[in-house]
């Protein structure tokens, strides 16, 4: 190899990121834009009434709704739940085929082709954010034309889940590499984050102390979901604030 070329290759290296997300429960209004955005981006099949009634609906991100109190002193909490991209992911160790594995950027990746459908990972995931193709997904023509060519369509018998829109991550990285520059905070976003009208979802590099997501992760409202399980989730929840009369006076 010509030394010049070698030099050139050494000169640029894309920084490896530690992708994470912050979910602000104080902003989230339960509008579900994220839910449909994810369907559209990731070719998630709609399963139809009969299958949905049998508990087979797939929503990689869902808005959990919890009531507190009784009428009329009632409160509701919305909590968007997607794959927490655990650093210590219970779904990974149990997968016999490495279909659920940890990729170099610390994401819990799902290799559809490798999955044989034991559904062990889904039992192990304490966040219940793994969805299984119980039947072969179908798109009534021409709804198939909506499919995103960047994302593989899953078939019957395999597990799927939120990927942090890995296709968008890859595309951005490839682009940056091509242009020999580092990625900027907020340069691209997963589909749910991009749509969220209240900006309840913030995505970015947790290793970059300046990124919005890493600053939010240090917020005093920050908490993890099921923290005692030691799964080390990369999604941080920002608890709802409360309103005190004194606050503004």
């Amino acid at each position: 190899m010509a030394p010049a070329k070698e030099q050139n290759q050494k000169a640029f290296r894309l920084k490896r990121r530690n992708w994470g997300m912050a979910v602000d429960e104080d902003r989230c209004t339960g509008c579900e834009a994220c839910v449909v955005a994810c369907h559209a981006e990731n070719n998630i099949a709609t399963v139809g009434e009969e299958q949905a009634a049998r508990g087979r609906a797939m929503h990689w991100i869902r808005i959990e709704r919890y009531y507190e109190g009784t009428f009329p002193d009632i409160k509701v909490k919305y909590q968007p739940v997607l794959c927490q991209q655990c650093d210590n992911a219970p779904c990974e160790a149990v997968c016999p085929t490495y279909a659920s594995y940890h990729n170099a950027e610390g994401l819990n990746a799902q290799i559809y082709n490798r999955c044989i459908g034991t559904r062990y990972c889904a039992n192990a995931c304490p966040y219940e954010d793994r969805y299984f193709n119980f039947v072969n997904p179908a798109w009534d023509e021409p709804l198939n034309l909506q499919l995103n060519p960047d994302v593989s369509v899953r078939s019957v018998g395999i597990m799927e889940k939120c990927t942090f829109c890995i296709q968008r991550i890859r595309a951005a990285e490839i682009n940056a590499e091509k242009e020999k520059r580092q990625l900027k905070d907020g340069e691209f976003n997963p589909a749910c984050v991009q749509s969220c009208p209240t900006e309840a979802l913030v995505f970015g590099d947790l290793d970059d102390p300046e990124s919005r997501v890493s600053r939010l992760a240090k917020s005093n409202r920050a908490a993890k979901l099921l923290p005692d399980l030691g799964t080390k989730p990369k999604v941080t929840y920002l608890r709802r604030g409360s309103w005190y009369d004194e606050q503004n006076t």
Binding site: Q51, A57, R119, A122, Y131, F132, F134, V156
Partner: peptide
């Protein structure tokens, strides 16, 4: 598909 069983999420 395994959906013929009663299994679900």
């Amino acid at each position: 598909g395994i959906g013929a069983s009663g299994l679900d999420r």
